[in-house]
Amino acid sequence: MNKLTTQHNYISALTPLRGIAALWVVIFHIDVSIYYRDLGALVSRDATGILSKGYLWVDFFFLLSGFIICHVYGQKLIENWNFKTIKSFLWSRFSRLYPLHFFTLVILIIGVWITPKYFPNVIDGSWVTYFSPQALPIQFSMINAMNLYHFLSWNMPSWSIGAEWWTYTIAVFIIPLLYRKNTRIILLSSILAIIALGSLVYLHPNQNLDITWDYGFLRCLFEFIIGINIYQFYQKELGKAILKLDFIIPLLFVLIILTFHYQLPDLINIPIFILLILAAAYNQRKVRAILERPVFRFLGDISYSMYLVHGIWFFVFWFIFPHWKQAENINTLSIPQRLIYTLLFLSLTILSSAFTYYFIEIKARKKLRRMY
């Protein structure tokens, strides 16, 4: 058995950042579920994009993924680039991604089978679009970010999981090519990836980075490449003297909030996210101590579960609350009702995510890796 050994030097501050990013995406979808069901909005979209731009944290995930994969597996893929190493790498990533993806799909299939029998009143026109049987093979094979089914379907956030998986399959060729610590290669590949990402935005109908089922795979791939190069910047300690300072990470969060609030072009956030990853990786002071507190570590640990499991709760709220609104003859949710709605959604997501993290993610991953 040839297990892919990994580098040790765990960069602890990055896990809590992943938790914060996942939580922001959850709140973004809470706002979507209220806004597009004519229940009001958590905050006015005309006044601020602080929530409506929350989809950009997925770009942070893609950049971070390239960074982390290069940190953990990069050297091994270069030193021992052969069938066994590639197989070990891909099996490791498959056992990380697929069990929870499969579990959430099965839960939704059961729900879609039961609901029409016992709760037919909650079903509307969007049901057929979201839960088309034609989309299931695409979901199970994780090719749900390649423009094969023209809508988000079943567990909607899972498009990015498919994008990540197929990016990993290409990464076994990309990493040996790019991970050379050659400044020219780093700069050239970064420039080309940014140009490609900009072209993707320009050609997209919405001209933003909210690219999901329609070539979200390319969005992931280009940002993953940038993430590989971020890691090489990290190894060269570029900007460390400044980025390691405690005020940098709060400053970058302020910049992110401002770009979201003023709804500036999405691509502006890419360099900010790059700096945030580097700053978190470099920082050894108070900010890291704060990020390593149990609550942030916990959110980081369950971030993947939060990301996928909240897709199930999204549909629960999406179909039930409009029915409740009609039954109670309510036009929009009041501020206290929106607060209760948000807290209920978040609580159910976090509690169920803790369960799936410990009993689905960890257990299935261990079992699958023992099979290799």
Rank of each mutant, 00 (worst) to 15 (best):
L42K: 08
R45N: 11
H29I: 13
Y10L: 14
S52F: 04
L17E: 03
I27K: 03
H8T: 15
I30N: 10
W24L: 08
Y36I: 06
A13Y: 00
D38C: 12
S33M: 11
K53P: 00
D46K: 14
V25M: 13
D31K: 01
L17H: 05
K53M: 03
G40T: 05
I50K: 02
I11G: 07
D46E: 15
Y35K: 14
I20G: 02
L39T: 11
R45Q: 12
D38M: 09
Y35D: 09
V32E: 14
K53Q: 11
I27M: 15
A47T: 08
R37K: 13
L42T: 09
L42A: 08
S33V: 14
A41G: 13
P16K: 01
D31H: 08
L14A: 07
L51V: 07
L39W: 12
L51F: 10
S44V: 05
Y35R: 14
L39C: 12
S44Y: 07
T48D: 03
I30Q: 04
L42F: 06
R37C: 10
Y36E: 09
Y36G: 06
A21Q: 00
Y36K: 08
A41S: 15
R45I: 07
A22S: 15
V43W: 06
A47F: 11
D46Y: 15
Y36C: 01
N9P: 03
L51N: 02
R18C: 09
S12W: 00
P16L: 01
S44R: 13
L23M: 13
G49P: 07
G19K: 04
D46V: 05
G49C: 03
A21R: 00
D46I: 09
L42P: 07
H8K: 15
V43S: 08
R45W: 15
I11E: 09
R18E: 01
S33W: 08
L39Q: 06
S33I: 12
Y10M: 11
N9E: 13
I50W: 08
Y36M: 11
F28N: 04
I34Y: 05
V26H: 02
R18D: 03
V25S: 08
L14I: 04
T15D: 03
H29R: 06
D46N: 11
I11Y: 01
A13G: 05
D31G: 10
I30Y: 08
D46F: 04
L23R: 02
L17D: 08
S44F: 09
T15Q: 05
I34V: 14
V25L: 11
G40D: 13
R37D: 13
A41D: 14
A13P: 00
D46W: 10
G19A: 07
I30D: 04
W24F: 10
L51P: 03
T48L: 03
D46M: 03
A13R: 01
K53L: 01
R18P: 06
